[in-house]
């Protein structure tokens, strides 16, 4: 508690930095995942290969991933954000594709039969009808991003990880504690916001 009172500005600063890293990574991750999703939908053959590849990448430990990237992109926030984006691709693409797959085949076939192009079917039919599944995937990626982002501090990218690593180095329990609590709170808060968004989507079951 004492630590919180004395250093709340430092904690808040770290939390704000953390939030920033998370939001930037999420925005870029979503953009990348959407592109991959469109690709996989247009060329179904590549989706299996792509998911397989991403799942292997996903299983690489984050410190190892950082180590691989540092020689290329250096220390700092950019590298951290790239790592987060890479990890998210597996979570997002998997859930997005599962959502698209869940759309009623009769509806998709009707759309094709009436003369919608594959892209129109994706944008007008499949995406709107899988919004809930997609938001569910985004929630998982978001929580994972908040937690993995703490690692970013190990390469001087800032965020709540800075406090955690400081605490570990100096064996300061309150720093470890507050770093963890804030990171968890951030994850819960962001997840809750998306949870509300998810519930607001109508489910269109017939």
């Amino acid at each position: 508690m004492e630590y919180l009172v004395n250093y709340y500005d430092k904690l808040l600063g770290a939390a704000a930095e953390h939030l920033q890293i998370v939001l930037v990574s999420m925005a870029l991750s979503l953009a990348a995942a959407m592109i991959l999703t469109v690709l996989c939908d247009m060329v179904p053959l590549i989706s299996g290969v792509m998911l397989g590849f991403l799942s292997v990448v996903y299983s690489v430990p984050s410190l190892a991933m950082l180590a691989v990237l540092i020689p290329v992109t250096g220390l700092g926030r950019t590298t951290a954000i790239i790592v987060l984006i890479i990890y998210n691709q597996y979570l997002l693409l998997r859930n997005f594709l599962a959502g698209l797959d869940g759309v009623d085949g009769g509806v998709v076939e009707a759309a094709a039969g009436l003369g919608m192009s594959p892209f129109q079917i994706l944008v007008k039919i499949k995406f709107p009808l899988s919004k809930r599944a997609m938001i569910a995937g985004i929630r998982i990626a978001l929580v994972s991003t908040v937690s993995i982002a703490t690692i970013a501090a190990s390469i001087n990218a800032g965020g709540l990880g800075t406090i955690l690593f400081d605490g570990l180095r100096t064996m300061n329990a309150s720093k470890i504690l507050w770093g963890s609590i804030l990171s968890a709170l951030l994850a819960i808060l962001l997840d809750w916001i998306l949870g509300v968004a998810e519930k607001r989507q109508k489910s269109y079951s017939l």
Binding site: D104, V107, E109
Partner: peptide
């Protein structure tokens, strides 16, 4: 193929209305 389909009316067996 898209042009062919737009010129053909199609009532599918599963009805397949767009629920949204």
């Amino acid at each position: 193929v898209v042009k062919v389909r737009r010129g053909i009316g199609y009532v599918i067996q599963q009805i397949g209305l767009f629920p949204h």
